[in-house]
Nucleic acid binder design. Sequence first.
DNA 1: TTGTACGCGTTATCAT
DNA 2: ATGATAACGCGTACAA
Lengths: 340, 340
Amino acid sequence: METYGKESSKENLTIHDVAKALGVSASTVSRAISGKGRIGEKTRQRVLQYIDEKSFYPNASARSLAQSKTYNIAIIMPEVKDLVDMPFFHTCMHGAEEIAQVNDYDLLIVTTDGTNIKPLERMVNNRKVDGMILTRLYREDAFVDYLKSTGIPFVAIGNSDDPDVYTVDHDNYGGCRELVGLLLSKGIRRVAYLGGGMEQTVNIKRFEGYCDGLKEAGKQVDNSIVYTDLISKVKVSKAVEEVLKTDTDCILCQDDYICDEVVHYLADKGIDIPKKMKVASCHHSKLLDNFPVTITSLKFDTMEIGRRACKTLLGIINGEKVYKNTLLDYEINLKESTKG
Amino acid sequence: METYGKESSKENLTIHDVAKALGVSASTVSRAISGKGRIGEKTRQRVLQYIDEKSFYPNASARSLAQSKTYNIAIIMPEVKDLVDMPFFHTCMHGAEEIAQVNDYDLLIVTTDGTNIKPLERMVNNRKVDGMILTRLYREDAFVDYLKSTGIPFVAIGNSDDPDVYTVDHDNYGGCRELVGLLLSKGIRRVAYLGGGMEQTVNIKRFEGYCDGLKEAGKQVDNSIVYTDLISKVKVSKAVEEVLKTDTDCILCQDDYICDEVVHYLADKGIDIPKKMKVASCHHSKLLDNFPVTITSLKFDTMEIGRRACKTLLGIINGEKVYKNTLLDYEINLKESTKG
DNA sequence: TTGTACGCGTTATCAT
DNA sequence: ATGATAACGCGTACAA
């Protein structure tokens, strides 16, 4: 096994090689790189210059083993099937990655549906990551229970009642409440609510905002124009059909996916927006940009969600003091769809 | 150091713990797990049962260090700015992850623009991955040059002249050629081509397919209705405006992003599709689904691209024989936009 | 300030 | 078939 010329080839150097070449010990090299422990400034510079020159990079696995730290974090993505709002998750992912990268962490993606925790277990059991970001929260969240039981640091995107869970979220509640208030102040009389399920906490928050927005304006929540189980396009259409029978003059959509269906339905029926019916959405994405009429909506900085989630996670990992619950601001975009 | 009750706590076991408990040596345990090396069937079962019972999982970092293998691969994603066709990349990503997961590999994502190879270098230098998937290919690709120089296994999504590069791609050339032929056979006389830049090899392939499709039908490529530099919406509009001055009866769009703009422009001008102008796109995505008129397009199985890229990469890593260039099939969807 | 020696948990080589 | 032992490359008490 001839290893002559090893140094000059693409064989990887070790701190021992560096140490030998510089006539110091391996620990000195280690210290120079990590910055930990006392070390003379000149030797430190000497080492740093040498490893830069020779392009030495520490072996991540070895470092990992020695420190019990992987410098990896994982982000859990929902199954692709319901990819209607995948852009949201992907944008979060990129935000998280941005922060991870500048902190010399790598981001590992894991896709799984809401029930299968096997992929998480593998990561945790094999100690492939130092922490995790959960991109979705359910009311009774099996992932949360599992992660808590393991003690691994994690941050969830969304809202949780659990005082143990670190969360980062948009202020869905505040946004919806203010939006509803704004709509009512503009002369709109009755606002219907079209939502698609209450399993995810984000939807609960939006609905609460809707309710409190009404109450704040002295109005009652009228259950005959409230829908929270519109899990298919057909159901959305049906709901709009029902709403049209009442004297409702505005439809508030839980997200732009529902809004998409509402707008299409109204267009099909020749019902003018905003003349005959006003429409607003609790979430803005690219989807809304392709409509003939611009839609009033809540705009959130999704990338920032990912960034903050990652920052918080790294904070926890590094034992820093971080906020338990981060609530990011919203922006209300008033557009044509609620004009008049 | 009292370690009583250690087993029941969340302290992680090692193969030594297992070995001691079973009265065998650590190497035996290792063999039982890996399946490598000779080992008695009954001891093997005994070990396997025990580790299952006690939920022992090998430490990934240690294994990594010992084997010089990370069981990680990376996928390089383009910068988020031009997220017009991000869904393509994200879908690839999920496809790759699916395969990675069933092979006990983890997928690490890295975002970078076309010029900055720093993030790649970090991964390679620190040996955090066993291989990489490149989701984009440029004509003179700095990433390819770099990766080749390191010797790390990698697979690129797209097309490359370089005989050293493993690639997986849709048959963009064949698809476009057949699509053009089909359009012409349906009575269309002149097909304009609207493309958005020739840096990426996928666009070159599509354009070549367009040209050869024409030639095959005995037509000449007419440069006055060919655009390959429409890098903004305005430019696309301008191009359509120009094309409308000629007696062109069909516009072939390089991708659905351009198609989006074309359709909107025509709608604004009150030009009926397909009566006054036929439209087709070389790529289908969700974007096309929201149009008032259904669009004839090439449909590719993007998830499968990711899967195959990952399979190929794992094949290379494991020293298996794999195809150098994989070309996946296309599907031509004839819709209203070219009817007549 | 620097060096020595050992540990991190696994795999691989060599005996037995 | 199994066990002892040496890597793998880095971090870190402890010693000097």
